[in-house]
């Protein structure tokens, strides 16, 4: 038994080391991205200090702080990496291996992503979401922690992740036509960040633009769960935004099926 342990212990510690290195990298990346949220925080702080009003477009400063960090956390929670990996796999041809397997292409990606996402979110939830909760409990003038809103948030964020997953799968099929996906990814990300409300709460836009953006699928990705958490919606509004989310989810599931049907005929595998 001791012999057995001595023989295999190096493998275990190598595995642990590898996992730690990988997570350390992930944490450093996440920390780098958090800096952006802090820049936004200081900007809004200066805005609220320069302004004579204590609330801007319905947001008090503590609500804005929650919005900034919660939308950052929600962005990580609902992020989906499918489109860039499909692009890479089309580029180096390894996508052929996925298509040859007797399982659904989409499901293959989904389960792969769920695995790493559980760990990533688990690692980040403690410092980030914990920080948000502590701020809400300790901070002055913050909205009261509400269990119903919390549950609505997690439900809505889960639907948001699924919408994002299928949206990215639809989008990734453009790699079959464009080959390389770097450019279209840059363009897509810029638009999504803006239209989902992660840059500025949609309530700060002119009313016409606001109404358009609220109906488009992008607000379902981020704005809806965050606003539900903040308790900004009445019961009626809550039901309608949740129904809208579910509508977009079904829409993208079907769209993914249809595009896949056409895209698969267009695919040309490139060399290694």
């Amino acid at each position: 038994m001791t012999n057995f342990l001595r023989k295999y212990r190096p493998f275990v510690s190598a595995g642990i080391e590898e996992a730690i290195v990988y997570r350390a990298n992930f944490l450093l990346f996440a920390l780098g991205n958090t800096l952006g949220a802090f820049v936004t925080y200081f900007l809004w702080k200066a805005v609220f200090q320069s302004s004579t009003n204590s609330s801007l477009n319905g947001f008090t400063f503590p609500e804005m702080v929650l919005y900034i960090f919660l939308s950052f956390f929600t962005g990580i929670l609902t992020s989906s990496d499918g489109s860039s990996s499909v692009g890479d796999e089309v580029k180096d041809g390894s996508i052929a291996m996925r298509i040859l397997k007797p399982i659904s292409f989409t499901a293959n990606y989904f389960y792969e992503e769920i695995g790493s996402k559980l760990i990533d979110v688990g690692v980040l939830a403690v410092p980030l979401f914990g920080g948000i909760l502590i701020y809400q409990i300790v901070g002055k003038g913050t909205p009261v922690l509400n269990l119903v809103n919390l549950l609505l948030y997690f439900f809505s964020a889960t639907v948001a992740y699924l919408i994002n997953f299928y949206f990215n799968i639809c989008f990734s099929f453009t790699a079959f036509f464009f080959r390389n996906l770097w450019g279209s990814n840059v363009l897509k990300n810029a638009l999504v960040i803006f239209m989902s409300g992660s840059l500025v709460p949609l309530a700060f836009f002119p009313p016409v633009l606001q109404n358009v953006l609220k109906v488009l699928p992008f607000s379902s990705l981020l704005y809806t769960p965050v606003m539900l958490y903040l308790g900004k919606y009445s019961a009626e509004q809550t039901i309608s935004v949740l129904l809208l989310q579910i509508f977009w989810l079904i829409f993208f599931i079907f769209l993914a099926k249809i595009i896949w049907h056409f895209a698969i005929k267009h695919l040309s595998i490139q060399g290694g």
Binding site: N180, W182, G183, S184, V186, L187
Partner: peptide, 16 residues
Amino acid sequence: EYKADFIVGVLGVLLN
């Protein structure tokens, strides 16, 4: 080599 993608990417950076 990936011309279309490249042009879209520059547009994306601009848009950002």
